[in-house]
């Protein structure tokens, strides 16, 4: 009986700890996506269609990831990067298939959000380079969404 009470106490304590740590343990790429979509919101009013699909993962401070994407001349694109890590600093930049910077000068970085604007000069493959510049976490979730008009 005594051991049963002990087990209940231990399980309850474990559950309490889990509940307390929930935001840390279960923070995910989905949270990062919510931030990326938040960054995209103002642009929807300007007529940008935001894709439902998104790309994400986790990176350490100073690490980068490239996403290859087909862009079409005639369209205008914005890429938005987000992370749920409050004090992280992220960036996103777009290069053409020759490695030349292909974005407009109005891209921005605001803490855990960043945006890059592209009006492709040619139809073809482009590289979207996402980066976690600084972060208090070992690994930082990121999510990239894009919109076009």
């Amino acid at each position: 009986m005594k051991s049963c009470a002990k087990l209940v106490f231990q399980t309850s304590a474990l559950l309490l700890v889990l509940v307390a740590l929930q935001p840390v343990i279960f923070a995910s790429v989905d949270d990062a996506q919510s931030f990326a979509l938040q960054a995209a919101e103002p642009y929807v009013k300007q007529g940008f269609q935001v894709r439902e699909d998104y790309w994400g993962g986790d990176l350490g401070s100073g690490e980068k990831k490239a996403v290859r994407q087909q862009l079409f001349k005639g369209n205008e694109y914005w890429f938005w990067l987000g992370t749920e890590v409050d004090k992280a600093k992220v960036s996103v930049h777009v290069y053409d298939s020759d490695g030349k910077l292909a974005e407009e000068p109005d891209g921005w970085e605001k803490g855990h959000f960043a945006g890059a604007h592209v009006i492709p000069k040619a139809t073809g493959s482009y590289f979207i380079i996402v980066s976690v510049e600084e972060s208090p976490e070992d690994r930082t979730h990121w999510a990239l969404v894009y919109g076009f008009r």
Binding site: E63, K65, V67, R68, S91, L101, G107, E109
Partner: peptide, 21 residues
């Protein structure tokens, strides 16, 4: 991050490139 390089060598990208979207 403030100043993105004007040119990068795509072939020497140390990062893994995701599949084309």
């Amino acid at each position: 991050a403030a100043q993105a390089p004007q040119h990068i060598n795509i072939k020497q990208l140390a990062t893994r490139v995701e599949d084309v979207v």
